[in-house]
Amino acid sequence: MKVSDLLEARREKWRTLEELCGRLEARGRRRMDAPLVSRFAALYRSACADLALADAYQLPQETIRYLHQLVGRAHNQLYRSRLFRLRTWGRQLLVDVPQRLFRDRALRLAFFIFWGVFLLSAALGYSRPEFARHVVGKETMNRVEEMYSKPVDDQNPAFRGGMMGLYIANNAGIGLRCFAMGLLFGIFGLLDTIQNASMLGGIFGHMATTSQSDNFFRFVTAHGPFELTAIVMAAGAGMRMGFSLLDTKGLTRIASLRRAAMESVPTMGAFVVLFMMAALIEAFISPSSLPYAVKFGIFVFSIVTLVFYFVFLGYPREGHRAVG
């Protein structure tokens, strides 16, 4: 049998497979009925067999390239990407993430560094008037002081809606950036965390000494826990990735990074959700004229929620051996 005969015999099948690929690419799997799908699979396997025997058949290079392309195209349609599934995401967020984070040393490191630097910076900002201006910058500090010079007033809901958008886009953006920077061996994530912590600490310490301190603390109390925890989580998840390049646990560096990166995705989802909740509170409750007791109640509620999430849901259970 000559090659030209073989091509003649196969042409029909390959063309059909091509057509089915085109149809799948255009309309998706759902629109195809069962016999056609099994036909597609059979044609794909037969094209695979042809490709495997291409050398024995002495097919010309051109045809072999065509076959590579055809098999690749069909392969991509047969083994498609898995979509988001809400149920698995719920399970990830409420079961797997807290279990993993409870034992995550990178998160602990991020936590201690953030709060250590924050408290140090706050103490310095409180005791030395010029510290905050050096660390935070004169202009920013003046703007913050001016912002809280008058008591928080009840702005209209439309304005608050606008602020919520700004808070989500800005804060979650900072968090995601801090997370991504962790990839560089954790160093940039570490620097980012230290910078964030010293800035925030400086502002807190300095504002406590000024006459606007009352307005300031009334504003930040309610959303503080969620927001600061989210920043720590973002930094920790990023460092987890970066440190996996250093401590590979016996894998190659790339394999170790891949594992850590895939594990960090649900954590990323968790801190984005946290940022959104913080933004919601920051936009609608923090600037409202509700009595301070309510805001303080939300502060306590947030902390209880976080403790429940990280400690109660995270406490190691039988059958859930998360790797540290």
Binding site: A158, G162, G165, I168, G173
Partner: peptide, 25 residues
């Protein structure tokens, strides 16, 4: 649209949440 009905800030907020943030990240 939101400017016409006098809720310009809300429009901006919605844009940031629904378009700017998702388009960026």
């Amino acid at each position: 649209v939101f400017g016409v009905i006098g809720l310009g800030n809300l429009g901006l907020g919605l844009w940031l949440v629904l378009f700017f943030f998702p388009l960026t990240w």
